[in-house]
Nucleic acid binder design. Structure first.
Length: 718
DNA sequence: TAGGAGATAAACACTT
DNA sequence: TAAGTGTTTATCTCCT
């Protein structure tokens, strides 16, 4: 869309330029053309016609003034005087209504020799001056437009680079240099919401702005702007470089020719030093931004480099853009590092902890080594990727956790990875509808939506989430498919595979209930069955919860089930103050520990935070992802954040109900609206620990309010 | 090592 | 008849 508008701007500019360039000939030579022949676009038509009319007015006014000032000189005979009279009327009328006088009439005036040649000459000169003035005004406008356009393109390019880099960052594919210390963030340079332009579009944009894609700018007539020297070329380097290069003086050309020669010499020496490698050359392709020209060998590349990317204004502008891109990335990296350090400081983690591994982190291998992970490492929780060559940063002090992002592309991980992460998804009770919050997906909604990364959750979990996301808690199979493709870029391919898996899971798991509806069969979630299944998994994993009570300070009164629930619900969320704050600040009130008191857990024993058995907090997935990219939280699925908040409230409520409320916990103003799903109650409470969070006071009003909030959130999401 | 869970593939029946 | 939907089975990997 931006590209379209940008192209349109160029097109319009081109049209205006064309109309302007043809104006002189049409006006002065023939006088019979209406100026539309070269203007196919509406806007340029308007500008050309307006300009024409203005020039007509001014020319006629000048003629009139001349006639008035020199009443005798312009009158060759009484006959001509007679002819002047009818002419004065249209002139005066033309002053009021420019539409009346046509170029033909003006030509007629000239042909009838009302004016002397001197007057005509003066008139024409005046007209030319007027036209030049108009031209300059138009060019200034164009320059301003181009400036804006260039800034937009620059911004888009930077954003695209940032996005690309962050994606690579997340996948552990890129090594990043350290940020330049003390760099100040430039205004308006935050990470964009992903999904605006496809990489291909952005690449095309880059080509457009750099002229690498067939010199589209020249074709669009931009060069005309600068050829007159009135377009403020310095203000728009990326766009105007061609014009400058083409329109430069011989002296400049000569000087640049010498510089090119020197550049070639430098390149040759560089080539010799590097033994045929070049940062701008790889896989037979020129890596100059936006170029991608195929060079069969290095020599050809060098030739191409010297010819196409010589030291000229274009290359300079491209280099400038690249510098800004790098600068932005460094700033972004600096911000992320600061965020990470703050988070680690909050979690009482010391970067210089002795146990930190000096080995560089390899994300891909870290996935495969999850089996050997210390017990304190939560599996599959995203981390800020570092690189094998990266210096030991505070990040290195983090437990070596497998990166779900890095491991997402490792097919062999399969069930292990997904199952593990699924275990750490948070079953959050939001009234009767217990919604599971995925620690990864909530803050990384946009990421999974755009990146071709497999979500580390089981099909059953995702299906359930899809159904829970729906308005009436029921979806047709096709709607489930749509949710998958809409929410995860990963599921936009291999449709046959995952759709089969979805159907298989729907049929396999008892928690998914098929309901015949008027519009066909819809699938719903049997929450009790689902929780039963989950609770079985949780209770079957005692190590998950064994250290929780002491750490939490809740004493031993909590039964194992509640502890399990806590382990699965509260901790990952509590370990993510960003999520908490964002969730509550975005659409909900602060609920004591939740949003209003991010330090609610700050006083918790460090062991809980950094050394809990499963690293639920120490390896919080939101270390990096929680705030990256910014604004992701705002775009998270409503139920994810909403239920995160509600569920946490619900969980804490249960704590409170059991008389083990945290000292720092203040009763929430907004009680969770928990209702019992009207489904067969085939389970006893003791069979299902999660029933603690699924049965509570049910208030229709509160439920209405909650629905309203969810609706608002949905709108926000849209 | 056995059993469970999850993913994947495939076959089959039924419906639209 | 084709495509979509739903069910079932088998096999594999990984975890407990």
């Amino acid at each position: 869309m931006m590209q379209e508008s940008a192209t349109e701007t160029i097109s319009n500019s081109s049209m205006s330029q064309n109309g302007l360039s043809t104006l002189c000939s049409s006006q002065l030579e023939a006088g019979s053309r209406d100026g539309r022949s070269s203007a196919g676009d509406t806007s340029s038509e308007v500008s050309t016609v307006e300009l024409l009319h203005l020039q007509q007015q001014q020319a006629l006014q000048a003629a009139r003034q001349l006639l008035l000032q020199q009443p005798g000189s312009g009158l060759k005979s009484p006959k001509s005087q007679d002819k002047q009279r009818p002419l004065q009327v249209p002139v005066s009328v033309a002053m009021m209504s420019p539409q009346v006088i046509t170029p033909q009439q003006m030509q007629q005036i000239l042909q009838q020799q009302v004016l002397s040649p001197q007057q005509l000459q003066a008139l024409l000169q005046q007209q030319q001056a007027v036209m030049l003035q108009q031209q300059q005004q138009q060019q200034q406008q164009l320059a301003a437009q181009q400036l804006v356009f260039q800034q937009q393109l620059l911004q888009m390019q930077q954003l695209q680079q940032q996005q690309h880099l962050l994606n690579m960052q997340r996948q552990g594919l890129l090594s990043m240099p350290g940020p330049a210390p003390g760099q100040a963030a430039l205004p308006g340079q935050t990470l964009p919401p992903q999904g605006g332009l496809s990489p291909a579009e952005l690449q095309q944009l880059w080509k457009d702005v750099t002229g690498g894609g067939g010199h589209a700018m020249e074709d669009n007539g931009i060069k005309h702007n600068n050829s007159t020297g009135a377009g403020g070329a310095g203000a728009s380097p990326p766009i105007t470089h061609h014009a400058l290069a083409n329109g430069q003086s011989p002296v400049l050309n000569h000087r640049r020719e010498r510089e090119r020669e020197r550049d070639r010499e430098r390149e040759s020496s560089l080539h010799e030093e590097n033994g045929g490698t070049h940062p701008l050359y790889g896989h037979g392709v020129c890596k100059w931004p936006g170029c991608e020209s195929i060079c069969e060998d290095f020599g050809q590349f060098l030739k191409h480099l010297n010819n196409e990317h010589a030291l000229d204004d274009r290359s300079t502008a491209q280099c400038r853009v690249q510098m800004q891109v790098v600068q932005q990335l460094e700033i972004q990296l600096s911000k992320e590092r600061e965020r990470l350090q703050a988070m680690m400081a909050h979690l009482h983690m010391r970067p210089s902890e002795p146990k930190s591994s000096p080995k560089p982190l390899n994300l891909v291998s870290s996935v495969t080594m999850s089996k050997n992970l210390p017990s304190a490492s939560p599996p599959n929780l995203p981390q800020t990727p570092t690189t094998p060559t990266a210096p030991i940063t505070p990040m290195a002090a983090m437990p070596q956790v497998p990166s779900v992002l890095g491991g997402a592309n490792v097919p062999s991980m399969g069930a292990m990875r997904r199952r593990h992460v699924d275990k750490y998804s948070m079953p959050l009770s939001s009234g009767g509808d217990t919604v599971f919050i995925f620690p990864e997906i909530a803050p990384n909604y946009e990421f999974y939506k755009n990146a071709d990364v497999r979500p580390p959750f089981t099909y059953a979990t995702l299906i359930r989430q899809a159904i829970m996301d729906s308005a009436d808690m029921q979806l047709t199979l096709n709607e489930i498919y749509s949710w998958f493709t809409r929410t995860f870029a990963y599921f936009r391919r291999n449709a046959a595979t995952w759709k089969n898996a979805v159907r298989h899971n729907l049929s396999l798991h008892k928690c998914f209930v098929r309901v015949e509806n008027v519009k066909g069969a819809v699938w719903t979630v049997d929450e009790m069955e689902y929780q039963k299944r989950r609770s079985q998994k949780i209770t079957g994993s005692p190590s998950l919860v064994k250290n929780l009570p002491s750490s939490l300070g809740y004493g031993t009164a909590l039964n194992a089930s509640l502890q399990a629930a806590l382990a699965e619900t509260s901790l990952p969320l509590l370990g993510n103050p960003g999520l908490m704050n964002s969730g509550s600040a975005g659409h909900m009130g602060c609920h004591g520990l939740l949003g209003g008191d991010p330090s609610g857990l700050a006083g918790s024993p460090p062991g809980l935070l950094a050394g809990s058995p499963h690293g639920l907090l120490g390896g919080s997935p939101h270390g990096m992802m929680g705030g990256s990219p910014p604004g992701t939280l705002r775009c998270s699925p409503p139920s994810l954040l909403q239920s995160a908040h509600d569920e946490l409230n619900g969980t804490l409520d249960h704590l409170d109900t059991n008389g083990h409320s945290s000292p720092g916990y203040s009763p929430p103003v907004h009680m969770p609206q928990i209702h019992v799903k009207e489904e067969p109650q085939n389970m006893d409470d003791e069979d299902c620990p999660m029933s603690l969070v699924t049965t509570a006071n049910h208030s229709p009003e509160l439920e209405e309010e909650r629905d309203l909030e969810e609706g608002n959130l949905s709108e926000d999401l849209e």
